[in-house]
Design a protein around this nucleic acid. Sequence first.
DNA 1: GAGTAGAGATTGTTCAACAATCCTGCAAGA
DNA 2: TCTTGCAGGATTGTTGAACAATCTCTACTC
Lengths: 242, 242
Amino acid sequence: MSISQRGDDEGRQAWLRGVAADVARQDRSSSAERAADILRRSITEGALRPGAQLSEIELTEVLDVSRNTLREAFRLLTHEGLLVYKLHRGVFVPELDEQDVVDLYRLRRVLEVDVVRGLADRVPELPDERLEPLLAEVETAEAAALTDRWAAVGTANMQFHRHLIGLADSSRLDDITGRLLAELRLLFHVIATPQELHEPYIARNRGLFELLSEHKYDEAAEALDTYLRDSEQGLLDAFKAR
Amino acid sequence: MSISQRGDDEGRQAWLRGVAADVARQDRSSSAERAADILRRSITEGALRPGAQLSEIELTEVLDVSRNTLREAFRLLTHEGLLVYKLHRGVFVPELDEQDVVDLYRLRRVLEVDVVRGLADRVPELPDERLEPLLAEVETAEAAALTDRWAAVGTANMQFHRHLIGLADSSRLDDITGRLLAELRLLFHVIATPQELHEPYIARNRGLFELLSEHKYDEAAEALDTYLRDSEQGLLDAFKAR
DNA sequence: GAGTAGAGATTGTTCAACAATCCTGCAAGA
DNA sequence: TCTTGCAGGATTGTTGAACAATCTCTACTC
């Protein structure tokens, strides 16, 4: 389909913007970002455990980038909280503790609850289709649970919250959330029993989705608050049981 | 005073920790951070205006660092929101608009108000001396106002809020706040009338301090909420008048 | 066993070079 | 006139090598 076949100018411009966005997304080239992507996956999926040191020489060979570029990738990940620098000693996957759990959840609670509460005053009102990504994540989690893929359940649950925050249309909030969820993932890796950690929240996410689609925002905010408190307590218990 | 002249071991260790912290602060990775410091000041003080491009070659000569180190400094400032990268085009001082004002203030409001409200449930109770930095910033602002140094007033007012957030003892919150306030500073530079932008909040900051020192946290939270709404409106008005 | 000195390894920083991309101006064509 | 295509120059992206600064570990002394 060529551009000129589209009739209206508005539609054509929208289409152009879409293409531009795709290109920009694809064009996120930068060797550093590509290296960071690989490392990010290695960390969030648990191949690199908390406490592990990342050797520069070793990784330049594995990732096939220069030391300078690798260090730039390190910087990107430290900004996301997935790595920490120790001067003259190198970069490490951070080891978070109970205090970090409390800190992270405090932030999550205040931000997420505020987003949901804010949906009530929104003008124009939130279109229903904005909730579709939430439902998709719930269904992904449910499917993963059926085949005992609890890590995938955890991932889908987190994506649910990312999309929830996304409803606020705030790029800064999205940034902060990205970092919070990344750090949360680090915490999950010290947990021995992922099933009991993630399973209860599949149904609760579906419950949240339904409250939202019925525009019961205050109720949803209330439910989300206790939800997050329970989740925090679950993590703290898992920590103690370790 | 030499170490051995101090009698007690505890005191000596505390002293050593203090020195270690000072050294660490001084030794902060030097080159890249030193370059970042200079650039940060240039931006926040207005020498580098929003929209300006930062040339690598030019700055390597001015700052006397290598391109790699300079680029690391750029990364640091990008993380703080003081610079933005455009792939293959360079780094620029971002240009914020009304929408950014709304976005920033929404975050400020929810975070700061929550911090103040949370002080009520704090155990152990907040020691009075934790409020001293707040008072110091108020006095700094008052002194600066007497000599018409309105930029300094704005700085002190922002530091007031940084210390306010600091009462929550959350490193992540401190990070986020640092970025939010840095971005706010960018906004101030498009404002023609700094006096009417900053002057009213000197007294209001003092009022907040007094409510806090009387442990009237809910009242303080309420005052802070309207404070921030007024401040946001002031910025938006200034934007429109531009 | 505690403390110290030195060797080896790793990180911090710089430099110079080349590759990839963007911007500018100009000429050719509709 | 407006668009399109194409050099050419300028800027950024990436690399590899080199050296300095710092840490870690081992071996030694007491």
